[in-house]
Design a binder for these strands. Structure first.
Length: 820
RNA sequence: GCGAAAGUGGCGGAAUUGGCAGACGCGCUGGACUUAGGAUCCAGUAGGUAAUCCUGUGGGGGUUCAACUCCCCCCUUUCGCACCA
């Protein structure tokens, strides 16, 4: 086995070089070929790549080679998501500058990829931390700003005390930081936002067209966007001309409103006049609520708390006066941050009302029984009551009628609310794209003129990385100090950098024109290559990257820079690689198996084979070095066999006898299956079927002619080549062929030889297998029946019994049913 | 709590979509060649059993000549969301 490894490594170097000479990795621009843009999610370079990353790349490479052999012109670029927090961590912990650390990691990782001979067009490599890239990230910010899609807002934001920066909603997982798992706290800060909410509907609608995206990802995005149809209703605050807008999806319960509740962060809090004797208590409640962590506040277990404001509101439909509460169970970021309290028909309102002695008025009852309120609120549909002229009807009908009524009277109007929040993109970090804005005392906040891009990051040697809760750039005088582009007076730069998900939301576009320094890209080129035909990456990005990536594409389309609005036509989610305890492999978890040393030891083809045979590409898999043994044995067997027969080429061969015919059928079946399996990302079964064929060849070798085996091995080498390309090329070369096996055409299977002449018919009696029968394919039903009842084994069971009927499945099975 | 997916030998996993359960591989057992074996080759390997017999795809019911596959109930695991009004 050690010799095999050594031999493979020599072969690998040779072919890596050869492929480069042949420009196999390049998009050719040949007009007779169909283009295919194949893309794997690019990686954050945190050191060497590990087996989890590799899976992604290998899956892509198999497809690439398969596509080449199927006549496609393939664009397959690679790059690095190179801005990010770990680089700063390295600076703090080990005193290495973020850029050095990053470029060093990129060097290690890309040399691994190159060593593996993966077909990437390295001339298109994109690195997000380079000036020639982040200049255009900043440019996108400016374009969005010009078009009203960027704004600044002061509000309570997610703050990671460990990373010392704010986070977007998508980066908070179970109230913990996505990077370091620290508990998130709230902080009131003025930050930059991308107005992704104004694209909520478009992002939702676009999902309909993404036929080749996995259903679960689309569902996750749908739920994340969370469209909800309802009504905005104004409740007047008694004794003022202030109105409180509430959002509800249940206007059919409006006669059951017995209080109103607003969030502690609600804007009206600052305007409302509270009684002096209550004021202190109210303000303390608000302050405490805001300080509480999200976990404390959002726990469903927790009792619903709130404080009466001393004010009353008026229900517009019946003039009823109800108390206005401030409640921390009302979310400030959803809807209007105010709700109408209907304890009879909403569980949360019910709990709050019970605790605070608020009246419960039932306005909907179940159709055929009485609701017992000791069980809680009744939240289903039913028949209305206590609702004036809307009483005694189906609540769904009432909903229609009351909605029309409220709109007619001008009390409110139909409205759609989304769960999706705007994208907070400011980060108090150094290693990111600086936000291209200038703060001027006279002119306000003004954008950096386009001609001044990029706003360069200062050299990291001049930066103090000690966490201070604000951007490290803020204390860098020569970065911060700038002249206002409008009035020319002293002004300050924005000290924050952009969320790195902004960088990765448009890289797929830059690959089309990676070296353009005049503009972000040539529209013509982008239109030629995009959308991406197959995007491969992990499902964990469903509600982060994959939404941002669609959002930015839609924005650039609307601004006229693109003529399509979805970045990728097809998406494939490869499963994650876990360690043997079932933990996701990652650098930070310390369980990452690095690719470089692994490949040095076993060779690329073994590494590829191991990754591909581990299980279906779409499912998670446990990493185990045991897989190496099976694949190595297989390659050894293949090599030993193939090198005996790879001499000349027998182009066409008609099977000469039954054994040859049987093997020829097996070959055809295998060709079909491997092709189907590659398209379905089911590489494990493709390899299994090729192992089966090889096992069969070994078994029958002595019964087969040289010509036949020569013919078989040629095709075999072709279909296995996407999986183990180096060894395949070496075998292929033996056939006195030049160039590369990847320039040959994928073999077609012969439809006439997909089925054996003889079939085994399973003989069942009362559904139990009693015997098997080998007959000619398509033997007549009656004839089979006749021979079955004469069969000795069957006779034994038929003794003293009568056959009631029998079922025959052509070429498969016969089932005799006996009379009871 | 809601939504999605999944549960098959000692292990990773197959099963043409209702028709031979366990392909292929690991591991294990035996044998051959060997000074040697973490090499190679051959045979065996779901469980129970004397058996060509019985049992078996998370559990329980059902449909069917026939169920890993379809229907109903339950259990478990993973993932996503989680006071969204």
């Amino acid at each position: 086995m050690v010799e095999l490894m050594e031999e493979l490594k020599k072969i690998e170097e040779k072919w890596n070089k050869r492929w480069k000479e042949l420009s196999l990795q390049k998009f050719k621009g040949e007009s007779d070929k169909k283009k295919f843009y194949l893309l794997e999610m690019f990686a954050y370079p945190s050191g060497d790549l590990h087996m989890g990353h590799l899976r992604n790349y290998v899956i892509g490479d198999v497809l690439h080679r398969f596509l080449l052999m199927n006549g496609y012109d393939v664009l397959h670029p690679v790059g690095w998501d190179a801005f990010g927090l770990p680089a700063e961590g390295a600076a703090i912990k080990r005193g290495i500058s973020p850029d050095k650390w990053t470029y060093n990691n990129i060097g290690i990782s890309s040399s691994t990829l190159k060593k593996m001979g993966l077909l990437y067009d390295w001339d298109r490599e994109v690195i997000t931390c380079r000036e020639d890239y982040y200049k255009w990230t900043q440019w996108i910010f400016l374009k969005m700003y010009e078009n009203g899609l960027v704004y600044r807002k002061k509000s309570y934001v997610n703050w990671c005390p460990s990373c010392q920066t704010v986070l977007a909603n998508e980066q908070v997982i179970n109230n913990k930081c996505w990077r370091c798992s620290s508990e998130i706290t709230k902080k009131e800060l003025e930050q930059w936002y991308f107005k992704i909410t104004s694209y909520a509907q478009k992002l939702l609608d676009g999902l309909e067209d993404l036929k080749d995206w996995p259903e679960n990802i689309k569902t996750m995005q749908k739920n994340w966007i969370g469209r909800s149809e309802g009504l905005l209703i104004d409740f007047q605050v008694k004794g003022t001309d202030l109105k409180i807008k509430v959002f509800t999806t249940r206007p059919d319960t409006i006669y059951g409103v017995t209080f109103l509740a607003i969030a502690p962060e609600h804007d009206l809090i600052k305007i409302l006049k509270f009684d002096d004797d209550k004021k202190e208590m109210i303000l303390k409640y608000i302050e405490d609520s805001i300080k509480k962590s999200e976990i404390e506040r959002s726990s469903t277990e927790k009792e619903k708390s709130g404080v009466w404001s001393g004010l009353y509101c008026i229900n517009p439909v019946n003039g009823r006066e109800v108390k206005l509460f401030i409640c921390d169970y009302v979310l400030s970021g959803y809807g209007t941050g105010a709700v109408m309290g209907v304890p009879a028909h909403d569980q949360r309102d019910f709990e709050f009302a019970q605790k605070n002695g608020i009246e419960i008025i039932q306005v909907i009852k179940p159709k055929d029984y009485e609701w017992d309120f000791s069980k809680g609120a009744y939240v289903e549909d039913g028949i209305t009551l206590n609702s004036e002229q809307f009483s005694n009807m189906e609540s769904s009908l009432m909903k229609e009628k009351i909605t029309d009524f409220i709109e007619e009277k001008g009390y409110g109007k139909r409205s759609v609310t989304y769960r999706l929040r705007d994208w907070l993109i400011s980060r108090q970090r150094y290693w990111g794209a600086p936000i291209p804005m200038i703060h001027c005392e006279r002119c306000g906040i003004v954008p950096v003129p386009e001609k001044d891009l990029p706003v360069r990051l200062p050299d990291s040697s001049e930066i103090d990385f000690t966490p201070k809760g604000k951007s490290p750039l803020e204390s860098h005088k020569s970065f911060m100090n700038v002249k206002c582009p409008i009035c020319g007076n002293d002004a300050l730069r924005d000290p924050d950098t952009m969320d790195t998900f902004v960088d990765s939301s448009w890289y797929q576009l830059r690959y089309a024109d990676p070296k353009n320094d005049e503009k972000i890209f040539e529209k013509e080129l982008v239109d030629k290559f995009l959308p991406v035909d197959m995007y491969i990456g992990g499902a964990e990005h469903a509600n982060g990257h994959l939404i941002y990536f669609r959002f930015i594409t839609k924005v650039l389309k609307d601004l006229g820079y693109l003529s399509f609005d979805e970045p990728a036509l097809a998406l494939f989610n490869q499963g994650m690689i876990m360690d043997k305890n079932g933990n996701v492999m990652s650098k930070s978890a310390g369980n990452a198996v690095p690719v470089g040393p692994f490949v040095d030891r076993y060779g690329t083809d073994v590494a590829r084979g191991t990754e591909l045979f581990i299980g279906p590409a779409g499912k998670d898999a446990l990493w185990s070095e045991d897989g190496v043994i099976g694949i190595s044995r297989f390659l050894e067997r293949l090599k030993n066999f193939a090198f005996k027969y790879n001499k000349n080429i027998v182009k066409d061969y008609t099977p000469q006898n039954d054994i040859e015919k049987m093997i020829f059928v097996k070959l055809n079946k295998t060709i079909k299956q491997v092709g189907d399996d590659i398209r379905n990302f089911s590489h494990n079964t493709a390899l299994a079927s090729m192992m089966e064929l090889l096992n069969l060849l070994y078994k029958e070798e002595k019964n087969l002619s040289f010509e036949f085996l020569n013919f078989i091995i040629y095709k075999y080498t072709q279909i296995i080549s996407p999986f183990i390309p180096h060894l395949a090329e070496e075998i292929y070369e033996g056939f006195n062929e030049k160039d590369s096996i990847f320039l040959t055409t994928w073999p077609e299977y012969d439809k006439n030889f997909l089925m054996e002449d003889n079939v085994t018919i399973v003989v069942q009696i009362d559904g139990k297998i009693r015997d098997r029968l080998v007959v000619q394919r398509d033997t007549d039903k009656e004839e089979i029946f006749k021979s079955v009842i004469l069969n000795e084994t069957v006779k034994k069971y038929l003794k003293d019994k009568e056959i009631e009927k029998y079922v025959y499945v052509p070429n498969r099975l016969i089932n005799l049913i006996l009379k009871k």
